[in-house]
Design a protein around this nucleic acid. Structure first.
Lengths: 198, 198
DNA sequence: GTTACAGGTTTACACTGTTAGATAATACGC
DNA sequence: GCGTATTATCTAACAGTGTAAACCTGTAAC
């Protein structure tokens, strides 16, 4: 039954092409320029075909967002395996977030509804921010000093506010050339935050 | 010549109505639901009339953004007149920002292109973040400890990242009822930041 | 060979921001 | 008060948006 498999492969490929095309357009022209018709033109299909792969444009964005969070968690996992020290882990987590936001700003924009990217679903946030024990950042924070879960959750929230604030503010307000210069300032803030935990 | 004055008054009124209507719709249904036609319907004019008052929808949003920053600066001025102590000033500045973001989230969204609000102009940021000596926050930071202007500018930038991060993350991820609970966490972070300066 | 179906397209609807042209309402000179 | 000039406003239209329904078309099954 190689035919069905070939079709399955093709379907996956088209799906991936749609996602990639959306990101490409967003990167070049911003998310406000991403339309179903434009994507369809690039992948050389008629517009309605996209609805065979995604229920709506919103769901398409949701997929990109979810993929973004997944990718971030993969980086987190790698770091967790590389370093035992929770302080070191946190600093590396911060750096991974910086990389993600600066290297794939268009994904970061969808993840947090920035700069015209708009995905109505808030499911990803509930998953990400309520993870507690299973979240690498949460675990690292809890490992540094034994505290009540609620206290850790508060610090966890502060972590997100700090890192997100820096990344989003930098992407929003700075020109692309200036962004690179801000990394040391960001990393210094992350380190100070981590020091403050001990 | 009371006729011209009356016309002038009416024009100002309509202009204000347009801005208010846009904010109202955004508040109720989100910025993605704000359209020229919807605004026109509410103010009981035909859609093209809005272009007598604003060059484009983008310019309309820019006005709301600029008004937002102006309003914030008015609050800053009041605080500056009320308190001499720069640390106290900063804490109050933080609280003013919190009030602004939670009481007028739709304005805050436009100010920072959050949640579907998209204003392409970045003029307001350049004005706000490059103000240095004239900015109340910058002045307060500089007053706490005498330092080089560059160092103050870095701290100024960190201030914006911290406060913006908290406010935006809270508005994005939390439900409307949960937002109020986060205020103490935010203010605690602001105070810690201020303490760290001394 | 006919039927069933998946893959894809065309067409259409109800929106969007925005512009051009027509029209209604007002103000001014006589 | 009447005609004219100007201003205010509207209607119609264009190009674009997300999306749904209807239609075609080549392949598979019986």
């Amino acid at each position: 039954m190689g035919i069905l498999e070939r079709r399955e492969r093709l379907k996956k490929q088209v799906r991936a092409d749609i996602l990639k095309t959306a990101r490409d357009i967003a990167r070049d022209e911003g998310w406000q320029a991403v339309s179903i018709r434009k994507i369809a033109e690039v992948i050389e299909y008629s517009p309605p075909i996209l609805y065979e792969y995604f229920d709506s444009k919103d769901k398409l964005l949701e997929t990109i967002r979810d993929d973004g969070f997944s990718q971030l968690h993969e980086e987190f996992s790698k770091i967790k395996n590389l370093y035992r020290n929770p302080e070191k882990q946190l600093v590396e987590f911060g750096q991974a977030q910086w990389r993600m936001a600066t290297e794939q700003p268009e994904v970061f924009q969808v993840m947090f509804n920035l700069d015209g990217a708009l995905c109505l679903s808030k499911q990803a946030y509930q998953l990400e921010f309520n993870m507690r024990n299973n979240h690498p950042v949460w675990e690292a924070l809890a490992a540094i000093r034994p505290r009540a879960a609620d206290t850790v959750s508060k610090t966890f929230y502060e972590w997100w506010c700090l890192t997100y604030g820096f990344l989003a503010m930098t992407l929003i307000s700075q020109t692309r050339v200036n962004v690179a210069q801000m990394e040391p300032v960001f990393m210094e803030s992350v380190r100070r935050f981590v020091r403050g935990l001990m």
